[in-house]
Design a protein around this nucleic acid. Structure first.
Lengths: 205, 205, 205, 205
DNA sequence: CATGAATGAGAATTCATTCAT
DNA sequence: CATGAATGAATTCTCATTCAT
């Protein structure tokens, strides 16, 4: 069972969400069936339906919870108050910290392009997070600290590169905690063209 | 129907593969049902089973065909003969060309981490391609042209960044052909720490 | 392919009937599919439908042909002219001869209690044969040569005992030609209570 | 619904087995479809799959249950303790009793030469019963009470004759209880050449 | 409130039959 | 006339959901 991204009032609901996250990550939402989720959660099938009206709602809940936790972890109030360059560096560290602590949740979020089961409402969190990130990047571009160009695109590349690292981690079995985040950070900051960072700045979280 | 990555002896088999690729990309293998594939291919359900023993085999065929086409497009004999730095630049251009010509095939391949329907044999192509790419990267590192560090990891990051671009393309509706590949290339080569490239080198394919 | 119980005008139709008999005997009518019949007959599926409107008609044709051949083999004009006791002995010998020459046809006929695919018309031959046999048995009872009692029942028992021998033959792999038909005949004639037969009369056909 | 040959813990499983026996007897295993079984059992299709992994397993369960019940009914401990001649007579009576009480089960067992759906394991019961019967017959031959010759063959004939009676019963609609079992018994014992039985011994069960 | 047996709509697969070549 | 690819209705089996206990 993966570590929960949030604590939950009800322990059974919690177990269901955790089991579901784990299985959706392993197999896909479509590829997972409800009895399996119940089995892994150690509850009866009927119990799942006490907490979620149907499988789609369970999927949305898993997604929304994970995405919200990710957004909150990555953009904190401290980040909001920091200058753009510092903010970017903090976000990078937060992302590493989140993906290290909750690898399954992170991986699950990764694959939700295909969210046939996600209604637009569930995607709001995604947009909010995106907007905030883009704004920070634009601010950094405005002061010439980051390479010019479509900020969305830059963001996608940076995030993509990080996802690449996590995929490699899962494929190779080498946990995220084992990487040389200093040099990965330098590489990624080069990608952004980020001026104004001293060598040795990026250290393992 | 997406453009086919290969031509095929049998036109019905071809239509089935194309329709399946398209739907698997839109929805997931598990999330697509056989009648839908038949409908989109414009054939009867039974026809699919003339060419593929079952849905899993169809999934494998779609995957293997796309992955093989990708591998062949990316690493050509020319690439094999070139020096490491040139090879890397060629691969990068080939990847852009493939993803531009066959966006659905590329996107489909992207999401096949979850290939519950892929037997180990189907993953051979993946390993072969990977090995070749890593060797080229190592050669480039050996001559000091590329940032040191685990070549697999660097590869994952570069590929991840590119996937980030394609995801953004799909999400935003801006086709790959519309991007400033010159600056994207420079950004990515910075990620690799690639020495020895002149400004203005990376232009749209 | 089993030996055909009749010769047939058309060689393809013949091959289909033979293959079908063989498969229906091995598997059941329901359990046999048309492509299999075609394969065993060495013809294309479509060819079957040139000679038989559908699978049911093919089943009926196989049945009717085999049953008719059996009836003609068992009750000949010679039998009809003979006295009841001689007739019974001849019928017994004919039955052995038929089952020996066409074991698959005989076995197939055996299992057609379940002829869900046989329309009443196809069962006419059965009734005709049965009527003739019963009449002979009644004549033998009338002259006190055979045990009294329902002649149908006696007939069922004698035929049942013979079927028992053929089943054993198929199960054990010992061909019918290898049995001691003399003593089997004596045993069965005891079952009928048949008076008036000398020892040593029943010999292998 | 036929009378069940055994009682069963679970009433739904019981209903499914009973309905299946009935239909397999009427139509053949191949000729019966699962929804029909469900309908006759008065359960939903899915329910059948709660108790049996697939149609083949259901077929095997029906067969094994019926055959085991038959074996247990026919060879009891009393039979095992009796002298060969008495044992044979008891077996004969038991067989009549079983076929009278469970005509469908008996008829079903009859037609299972074609058990394409029976794995070897399911046929073990058959062999066990057969072995016991043959041993008893051999013992009777050893003391000269039964006609000499292959005991398997004699057994097949006696059983075949009995099956003949039951087939006639089903075809004619005259129930087994209506026959003159005394004279049938005498006829069959003549078939065996069974010495040492007094007239009038075989009476209806 | 939790359970898990029962349900039946829907998904995968088979196969009798047709028909263009 | 023979062929066998194509068809789609029928069949087996799965699984989201309900509901009596």
């Amino acid at each position: 069972m993966p570590p929960s991204v949030t604590s939950d009032e009800n322990p059974l609901r919690r177990k269901v969400l955790d089991a579901a996250l784990e299985l959706f990550e392993e197999r896909t939402w479509d590829g997972t069936n409800v009895p399996e989720i119940a089995a892994r959660a150690g509850v009866a099938v009927g119990t799942i339906y006490r907490y979620f009206p149907n499988k789609q709602a369970l999927g949305e809940a898993v997604f929304t919870e994970a995405k919200t936790a990710f957004a909150n972890a990555v953009i904190t109030d401290e980040v909001r108050k920091a200058d753009p360059v510092t903010a970017i560096k903090m976000i990078w560290q937060h992302q590493i910290a989140f993906a290290t602590a909750y690898p399954q949740a992170f991986s699950f979020l990764e694959h939700q392009v295909h969210g046939s089961y996600l209604r637009p409402q569930a995607l709001e969190v995604v947009h909010r997070l995106n907007t905030e990130l883009v704004e920070i990047l634009q601010a950094a571009q405005a002061i010439g600290a980051v390479r010019p160009g479509d900020p969305q695109l830059l963001l996608s590349m940076v995030f993509g590169a990080f996802v690449g690292v996590t995929k490699y981690s899962r494929a190779s079995g080498i946990p995220l905690s084992a990487y040389d985040w200093g040099s990965i950070g330098q590489a990624v900051m080069s990608l952004l063209g980020l001026k104004d960072h001293e060598p040795g700045e990026f250290t393992d979280p």
